[in-house]
């Protein structure tokens, strides 16, 4: 194959992969620490997109520096992370930790249904468009094709998020506590770690990341009802491929899916629809615990 095309496939794949990573990383964090699959993640993505789009539209009406738009998106995500963390973790999940893990998934599914309609009640059905930031960064020519720098910046953002999470988990005090909780929740509690607080903070972090995924996508899409449903399955697939709760797994998994998908779109578009599920099924068959999760011992 000609090298130019290969380069284009690689770039397209990285861009799509970083989209996947940003969509899935919040889910991965919560899944890793709290051992639960959080379906409300889809709603958080949608809330992030809606709030960011609304704020961006307002922001571009006043005459403030254009690059402030990025701060607006970040603030929207932070706000949602804290608020949702409090509402969902404190208000709902905390009362269910003693239940079967399936029940918890289903509770988040129910909360997702509710949140989808809350979105409608707040924002109505009209789509929100805020494409201004998309043009802000200009574009770059790669292998003869123009790529917009906003999409390319997603790759950078993903790298930053992944590095910060890795550093936080492996090199900080909080990370050590977190690892203890991940390894053995009960033992950690017995050692005097405030597991409740760690769960709340983790959920806020995961929610923030979910909302950030939505907020950063907002300028590139038409923000409207139903966008949350679409990302859930994608995010689940990435989490399964990477290994439940593994951040490097989610990163590598996203890139693999992204590049494979780009390859399909360029060479055999009929396969596009299946790429992600085929990879997911293959990974589950060959390495059921996911690419990066350690195998767990069975307890008697």
């Amino acid at each position: 194959m000609d090298p130019e095309l290969l380069l284009i496939i690689l770039v397209d794949g990285l861009v799509y992969g970083s989209y996947l990573f940003m969509v899935a990383v919040g889910l991965t964090v919560i899944c890793g620490v709290q051992k639960l699959l959080n379906v409300t993640h889809g709603a958080l993505y949608a809330f992030g997109a809606y709030l960011a789009a609304t704020l961006l539209i307002l922001y571009f009406r006043v005459d403030w520096p254009e690059y402030g738009a990025f701060a607006v998106m970040l603030l929207a995500a932070l706000f949602l992370g804290v608020v949702f963390g409090l509402i969902i973790e404190r208000g709902l999940l905390r009362h269910l930790y003693h239940e079967d893990e399936h029940i918890i998934v289903l509770a988040t599914f129910a909360a997702f249904l509710v949140l989808e309609d809350v979105l409608l009640l707040i924002w109505g059905t009209d789509p929100y468009l805020a494409p201004e930031p998309l043009g802000l960064l200009g574009s770059t020519e790669i292998a003869g094709l123009p790529f917009d720098n906003y999409s390319l910046s997603m790759v950078l953002l993903s790298a930053v998020v992944a590095s910060v999470l890795w550093y936080g988990l492996n090199r900080t005090q909080f990370g050590k506590l977190l690892l203890a909780v991940i390894y053995d929740r009960e033992l950690a509690q017995a050692m005097g770690i405030n597991v409740n607080r760690i769960f709340l903070l983790t959920f806020m972090l995961g929610s923030f990341l979910g909302a950030l995924g939505g907020a950063y996508q907002a300028p590139a899409i038409s923000v409207q009802p139903g966008i949350g449903v679409e990302v859930i399955v994608l995010a689940f697939a990435v989490v399964v491929i990477g290994g439940m709760g593994s951040i490097p797994g989610a990163l590598i998994g996203s890139v693999i899916v992204g590049v494979a998908r780009a390859f399909a779109v360029h060479q055999e578009p009929a396969l596009e629809l299946f790429v992600i599920y085929l990879i997911m099924a293959t990974v589950l068959i060959v390495r059921p615990q996911g690419l990066f999760a350690p195998a767990k011992p069975r307890t008697i």
């Binding site: 699959l37 893990e101 399936h102 998934v105 399955v233 689940f236 697939a237 399964v240 439940m244 009929a270 629809l273 299946f274 599920y277 085929l278 997911m280 099924a281 589950l284 068959i285 059921p288 615990q289």
Partner: peptide, 28 residues
Amino acid sequence: FLLRQYRGIFFALLNMAFSMILYGVLAK
């Protein structure tokens, strides 16, 4: 034969993966 080796959330999700593959084939 494949699924019986899995438990918990893996089992649940692997089922979902297969159903989504069927969905893709049917929609296509």
